[in-house]
């Protein structure tokens, strides 16, 4: 598997970011300093601005105030400095698996078609999909589709990987497999990861650090550094004392954050294109 070189990660500095869509502020001076190669999970109640944060990091949205810097330089919206994995695999249904993975390289136009194909094939192998190159997305299972999305993002060798509840739609077993898979890849490639999830287990299992977001505009509720030893593996890590301890803490946090009264309750949360995009993707 090691025919892929380590990519490495960039430092990410979110500095005093203010953002609002309309009336109410979503972020009112949010600051997070992410180390190169750090695996950061962000967890918080629905509507607290997790997707908004990723959109800010990816340059789809701009902060009203404050800055976002990647390796010390403000992010430029025009160049894709990041890999993005969406909640639901947004593969292009008219392209085969390998063509999907090639897509970014094709847009970039630096490689010859042959080199592109070869590179895409390698990344498909990396995510364990050797032999499925010529399948269409609809002939793959949900987990496999999400692997393809991952390969499609990774093939661009981004030094920052943004993941918005990437395994949220998968069943528990597949999700755990994907968690292990992601850790293996991250270990091998070393990117900085900002990982959004609703799932406490997932956050604790994967990350170096967990940020719990409060409802807007209250920002960070807790910034927890996760000292579970690596390499992690399901049976040992998930049953360890420390794992349970983190989990308990986070459950208590979430209970507090979720109970704070807020006009955007979980159920009638349905406005805004970014939210709608996710819902569309869910269909």
């Amino acid at each position: 598997m090691s025919n892929i070189e380590r990519i490495g990660g960039d430092s990410l500095l979110i500095d005093d970011v203010h953002f609002n869509y309309g009336a109410g502020a979503i972020f009112d001076g949010l600051s997070i300093d992410v180390q190169p190669g750090e695996f950061l999970s962000i967890i918080g109640p629905s509507g607290c601005g997790k997707t908004t944060l990723l959109n800010l990091l990816s340059g789809f949205l701009f902060p009203r105030q404050g800055s976002i810097k990647l390796r010390g330089k403000p992010i430029a919206p025009e160049d894709p400095h990041f890999g993005y994995v969406f909640q639901h695999a947004t593969l292009f249904p008219w392209l085969t698996t390998v063509e999907n993975v090639e897509f970014g390289l094709r847009m970039e136009g630096n490689l010859s078609p042959l080199e592109r194909r070869e590179k895409a094939t390698r990344y498909l192998q990396l995510v364990g999909l050797e032999g499925f190159e010529n399948y269409l997305p609809r002939h793959l299972s949900g987990g496999m589709q999400q692997r393809v999305s991952l390969a499609r993002a990774l093939v661009m060798e981004p030094r920052l990987l943004l993941m918005d509840e990437p395994f949220g739609a998968l069943d528990a077993i597949t999700r755990e497999t994907m968690n292990d898979e992601l850790l293996r890849l991250w270990d091998e490639l070393g990117q900085t990861v900002v990982f959004i999830t609703h799932d406490i287990d997932e956050a604790v299992y994967l990350s170096d650090r967990i940020v719990v977001l409060h409802r807007p505009p209250n920002g960070i509720f807790r910034d927890l550094s996760n000292d579970l030893p690596r390499p992690r593996s399901g049976p040992t890590t998930r049953t360890s004392e420390l794992f349970w301890q983190y989990k308990k803490e986070l459950i208590a946090d979430i209970a507090v954050v979720a109970n704070t009264t807020n006009p955007n309750s979980d159920d009638d949360f349905d406005d805004g294109p970014s939210a709608r995009l996710l819902q569309e993707a869910a269909l």
Partner: peptide, 17 residues
């Protein structure tokens, strides 16, 4: 789907692309 367009943009697709 807006999500397909988003994915393409995240992969560096410009307007004409």
């Amino acid at each position: 789907q807006g999500s397909e367009v988003r994915a393409a943009r995240a992969l560096g697709a410009k307007k004409i692309q």
